Every structure is written in C-alpha cells, then in structure tokens.
Amino acid sequence: HNLTITQGKLFFHYNPKLCLSEIHKMEEVSGTKGRQERNDIALKTNGDQASCENELLKFSYIRTSFDKILLRWEPYWPPDFRDLLGFMLFYKEAPYQNVTEFDGQDACGSNSWTVVDIDPPLRSNDPKSQNHPGWLMRGLKPWTQYAIFVKTLVTFSDERRTYGAKSDIIYVQTDATNPSVPLDPISVSNSSSQIILKWKPPSDPNGNITHYLVFWERQAEDSELFELDYCLKGLKLPSRTWSPPFESEDSQKHNQSEYEDSAGECCSCPKTDSQILKELEESSFRKTFEDYLHNVVFVPRKTSSGTGAEDPRPSRKRRSLGDVGNVTVAVPTVAAFPNTSSTSVPTSPEEHRPFEKVVNKESLVISGLRHFTGYRIELQACNQDTPEERCSVAAYVSARTMPEAKADDIVGPVTHEIFENNVVHLMWQEPKEPNGLIVLYEVSYRRYGDEELHLCVSRKHFALERGCRLRGLSPGNYSVRIRATSLAGNGSWTEPTYFYVTDYLDVPSNIA
C-alpha cells in the first residue's frame, strides 16, 4: 500500500525493539523526510534493546553428524571492536523451508527459537588472519532439518551509529543413524509349514526405512522333555500350542467401542483428552525405555581390526524358502538304536541362519518350516543398504507352526516275539517326523474274553527296548493296539495285532 503524509511529521519514542533503520525507511515511504526535528525521533529510546544489523554474515563451514552440527561463519568486528559482546545463534526444527525470524513471537518477546549466546573469538592483530567464530550444536535429532541463523550482539553506541551483522536463515539436516526397533511384532501360524509375521514401523526411523531383515531359527525343545518319565503317576503330560491366527481386521481397528449394538453396526467412541494424553505418555515412556535398553543392555560386537582377528559373527547367506525346513542338525536320541526319531534339535552355532529381506511392506510369510516346531524370529529395521547396512537392534518374537495331521501315527506293522515265561516283546517304529517329539506310547492289549488293559511306555523305555515287553501273560489269544502321544496330543491307534500265548508248562520236552 502507498502511504503519503502531505502535512505533519513523524514522532517515535520509547520503541526499544524498533531499529532506527526501520524508522528511516518509514520517513522515505511516507514522504516526511526532512520535516522531523532532532528530538522527534529519539536516538536513545528507539532500538536500544534490539540488534540492528546492516551487514550480512556468511557461514564459512558446515559439518553434520547424526546428532551434531558444527558451524563456522566469517569474522565480524565493528569499528570499535570492544562493542562486540558476542553472537546469538538461533535454531529450531523446520520440516519445511518457510521459516521466518519472527515465527511464534508474542507480545512478551518470546519466540519459538532456541538461542545460544556465543563469546567472540580472540581478536588477531592481523586483519587478514582473524579467527572464524563458530559453535557445535549438540543433542539434535537424527535425520531432522533445522533452520539456523546467527547475528551479532553489540553494545549501545553513544554516537548512535547503527552497526551489526546478521546471516540469512539456512537449512541444515542432520545425518541418518540406526533406527529404533520395529514396533509390535506379531507372529502367527496359518499352516503346519508357515508363519505369518506382521509389525509396525519404528517410532524413530532416523532416516528413510529402506528394508527390513527377518531372521528365523528353529528352537530346540526343553531338555526336561527328553529326561522326564511322563508315565509316572502324578506327572502331567506336557503340551505345546501353536500360535493362533490373526483376529479379523475389524476387531483390530483402534479407537473402536468394545460393545456392539445388537441391531447392527455401531460407531466408534472418540477417545477423551485424558485417554489420548495417557497414550502419549505411555508411548514416550516406551521410547525412553527402549533407548535405555539399547544403550545399557546391548553391547556392540567388536569388529575385526587390522591384526587379522576374525569377526566372530557368522556370515549372512541367503537361502531359498524351500530350504528352511531342514535348518537344524538332527541327532538321534540314543545312538545305539537307529530307529528312534531325530527330534532332539541342538543347533550348531556355526550354522548360517536363513533370512529374508523385506522391502516396502511390514509383513512376511515364512514358508518351508517344520510342522509343530518353535521358531525364534528376529526382526531388524534398516535405513541404508549400501555401502553397508545400517540397521536397528533386533526385536524378537516366537511362534510355533501348526501340527501336521497323521504325523504322530505309527507307520509300519507292530511285530512281536514270544519268549519263555510268557513274555512277549512288542516292537514298532517311532514316527519319523512327529509333531514336536514323542513323549510316550500307549499300549492297549486284551486277552479274548477279558477286559482291555493299558500300559504306558516312556520315551526312554522305548529307546532301550525298541518297544516294550509284556510279562506274566496268561495263555490265550491276544490283540494289541499302540498309539503315540506327542507334544500336540495323541496320534491314531494302530491296526490290531494278534498273537497267541501258550502255557509254557505244557511245552513238550526233548528229553527222552
């Protein structure tokens, strides 16, 4: 807008934040220059609390790290170098490059900038070799853009010569660093050979998330399962459950009422301010606690030095998902009996873990797994792929695949051998790939016309006998059925096997 004052003059007093240069501009645009008398524009009460600059400061050096910015700028000295009290560095987070010096300023003089007072450097006698002032900004957020400017702080001049310097606002972004852990990993099994893994992005990506790394490792069953005799009275049979499938998407929606109208769909109840505040506090606490764990609990591995020492970490090797089922080394339970199943799973520490690289999504279907087997899954978020990966501390989750139908069934015939004193040795093959492992066998036998009897055969007993022995049988026709019990439950009964026990007292003698 054009402003013209045809008559009258300007009068400025007691404006401590208004620089004289701005008042002189007002004289020019209003056409009143030359009308004012000496005392109409006070030299001592206008701009006496402001830094009124008329020179431009330029930054000469900028260096960044993930949490620091090192700045240096060209030296500046007023005509009387004693008038320079120091520099004021202003900075704040700036997602967009549209910041002005006066953003967030209120009537009390406060604003949204963080201000650092910096002492002037030592003055050199040689004007050509003056030290460049600077400042190291610490405690910054990774991968965050900051708006920065600097200006001088000078003393009051009796001659009211307006001098000083100020830089333009520059924008500097800190470097990326390792992201925080992925949030809320959930693993479920939808079949006997697959596990579905879902997660949420890290709360602090500290860069642009480029991919996720998912490692999985087959877990050995508890050692007590191999040692305890679950045929003993009072000892509860062990059981394991597989990871249940995901709930429906509708039930997972946030901010939804727990109660549904019987007449149909209901609208979600909005969260109160107290609920939102509580969630923010919980989120802040979780982030602080995660940072504490990362800094205190997890110790970084030592990389190899120039002395030739090897990095103890196993090298990563990509495998196809079809090879995942046989990740671990199978060892027989008892070496003397080769027909026992290889369900003991000690994992070799030198073995390469299978892994998958996930790009542009937060889910993965891990296939080719062994049925009813526990897996430990390790999830890392990465925001750099080359020249070397920059990934987060791992988040861990466990899951067990679903049982395989008929995996616990005894394959092959049940054979028998009759000894003296009416002892019958029953023999059968253990299931080759049971659900988890076989903890015991149930032997059901009966003599024709009598009630059915049951015998429990422990895992250890089966390994020693290759089956079991029935003792003290009365003469007669017998039928026997056997079924295995694994961590997933009972298998199917075998087809009945028949044998006849004679009275050993009636056996004919070869003595003449």
Rank of each mutant, 00 (worst) to 15 (best):
Q275H: 12
E404W: 12
P332F: 15
V365A: 15
Y230L: 10
G308R: 11
Q275F: 08
V507N: 15
S392Y: 01
L369P: 01
V324N: 09
H425M: 09
E282G: 14
D229T: 08
D311G: 13
V507L: 02
V324M: 08
Q380T: 14
E495N: 10
S444F: 11
M402A: 12
L225H: 06
D204T: 03
Y504I: 11
S257R: 07
L237N: 06
A336D: 15
S251Y: 07
N208K: 12
S342N: 04
A330L: 02
D204M: 00
H461L: 09
S257C: 05
A220V: 07
T502Y: 01
S223L: 09
R286Q: 05
E465C: 07
D409Q: 05
E290S: 10
M402S: 14
A336H: 15
D323Q: 15
A407D: 05
H416V: 10
L505K: 09
S283E: 14
Y441R: 00
L235Y: 06
N339W: 10
A394H: 15
S398C: 14
F226L: 10
E260I: 15
E452L: 09
S304L: 10
S274H: 11
V457I: 08
N339G: 08
Y478D: 00
N435T: 00
P354M: 13
W242I: 04
E258D: 10
F226G: 10
N360K: 14
S305M: 08
G306E: 08
T502I: 03
N360T: 12
T333M: 10
D291K: 04
R481Y: 07
E404R: 07
V297H: 15
D291R: 07
S458K: 14
V397G: 09
S344G: 04
E265M: 08
G264R: 12
K361N: 10
F215L: 09
H461K: 10
D506A: 10
S363V: 14
R318K: 12
S320D: 08
F226M: 09
E350K: 08
R218S: 12
D273V: 13
G489C: 02
F285L: 11
Y500F: 03
F372A: 12
N255F: 02
F289M: 05
E362W: 13
K317M: 07
P270Y: 05
S274N: 09
V501D: 03
E282T: 08
C269M: 02
L470E: 00
F462E: 02
H416W: 06
Y448G: 00
Y230K: 14
L232P: 10
E260Y: 06
Y396A: 06
P244S: 13
G374P: 11
D506Y: 07
K432R: 05
T502W: 06
Y396K: 07
S492F: 11
C391M: 03
G472H: 08
R483G: 01
R376E: 04
E217H: 13
T307L: 10
S509A: 08
I418G: 06
G234E: 15
S274K: 06
